[in-house]
């Protein structure tokens, strides 16, 4: 009995995720002739790229037993802020830097309310979400509209549409890098280890001398930073910044983490799971679009998939233990 229990439990869920992915892929290959093409996979990766970027940090937050609902709004806020600054003559690299700092400020604020004041994360980050979203619209309005596109310097889209070796979109490159960094954080740094420890047993973490507040603030800052950078990337890629692009992003990120086997109560999860969870979401949406399915059935499918995937993982867990 002990032999089977050797693996940390979250790893035992990965095969199930892979199984779901394989089933989806086989199904899509059969029903859609255009599914199994390199370009399509690049499309899927591009679509889920932003989710992965944000979820990699948000996942660590969830591993500590907290949650960040403000990522979508921070993403939108950063895109708009970046575009606004670029339009008004601030050099792009400087604008990126300022935007990242501004985004991190939201994260630090979240970390302070959640970690220090011990406000329930759902409420604290919901409040931040409203504030960031409102400000995003306000910045756009100060610029004279609801989205910023005109007057952006020509180089604005260079970052988001950059192709490494002329072939690989920058987002995919970044996803690989960020995933690697977070795999590294997860396995190799104090931050990652402490995140698991806090989510596993907060009281024991405090008694072991882990500075829980600090870890939580850093994680929220990281999550906001990545959301902010994703906002820059996304607006640069589309060539336009709009304040409503982050809508529902937070729930997508949440779903990606949960599908990836991260427990909302904390202590368990992995970046690999996030990648697989994002792949499931990406395949689902891609498949439904390829098949031209009406958007309302897409919503039903999304809900069902979420529930089925979580049940499948729960069952695997109960079998193992």
């Amino acid at each position: 009995m002990t032999g089977k229990l050797r693996l940390p439990r979250f790893q035992s869920q990965l095969p199930i995720l892979v199984g779901i992915i394989v089933i989806m892929m086989i199904f899509l290959t059969i029903v859609s002739p255009n599914f199994l093409k390199a370009q399509n996979f690049s499309n899927i990766l591009l679509k889920i790229g932003i989710y992965i970027l944000i979820a990699s940090a948000a996942n660590l937050i969830m591993i500590t037993g907290n949650l960040d609902l403000s990522v979508g709004a921070v993403l939108a806020f950063s895109g708009i802020l970046h575009a606004y600054m670029c339009k008004h003559g601030i050099p792009i690299p400087l604008s990126i830097l300022i935007t990242c700092l501004a985004a991190m400020t939201w994260g630090v604020f979240n970390g302070f309310t959640v970690g220090k004041l011990r406000i329930v994360p759902v409420v604290a980050t919901l409040g931040t979400m409203y504030m960031a979203e409102g400000l995003a619209f306000l910045i756009a309005r100060w610029d004279g509209g609801t989205n910023i596109m005109l007057g952006l310097p020509g180089a604005y889209t260079r970052l988001g549409r950059y192709m490494l070796f002329g072939k690989i979109p920058i987002i995919i490159v970044l996803v690989v890098i960020v995933a690697a960094i977070f795999l590294f954080i997860e396995k190799k740094t104090k931050l990652g280890r402490f995140s698991f420890a806090i989510g596993d047993n907060r009281s024991a973490a405090e008694l072991s001398g882990i500075n829980v507040t600090k870890v939580i603030i850093i994680l929220y800052a990281l999550s906001a930073l990545l959301a902010g950078f994703s906002g820059i990337l996304q607006s640069s890629r589309v060539g336009l910044a709009a304040p409503n692009v982050g809508r529902m992003m937070e729930t997508y990120v949440l779903i990606v983490c949960v599908l990836g086997g991260t427990k909302m109560s904390g202590g368990r999860g992995s970046i690999i799971g996030v990648l697989l969870g994002a792949a499931i979401i990406g395949l689902l949406e891609n498949g439904l679009n390829l098949l031209g399915i009406e958007h309302f059935y897409q919503e039903v499918a999304r809900g069902l998939l979420l529930i089925i995937a979580v049940i499948a993982q729960k069952n695997s867990k109960s079998v193992k233990s």
Binding site: N34, Q39, N43, N289, L291
Partner: peptide
């Protein structure tokens, strides 16, 4: 992106 994939 998906539409153009399914029907270029």
């Amino acid at each position: 992106l998906d539409v153009l994939q399914s029907d270029p």
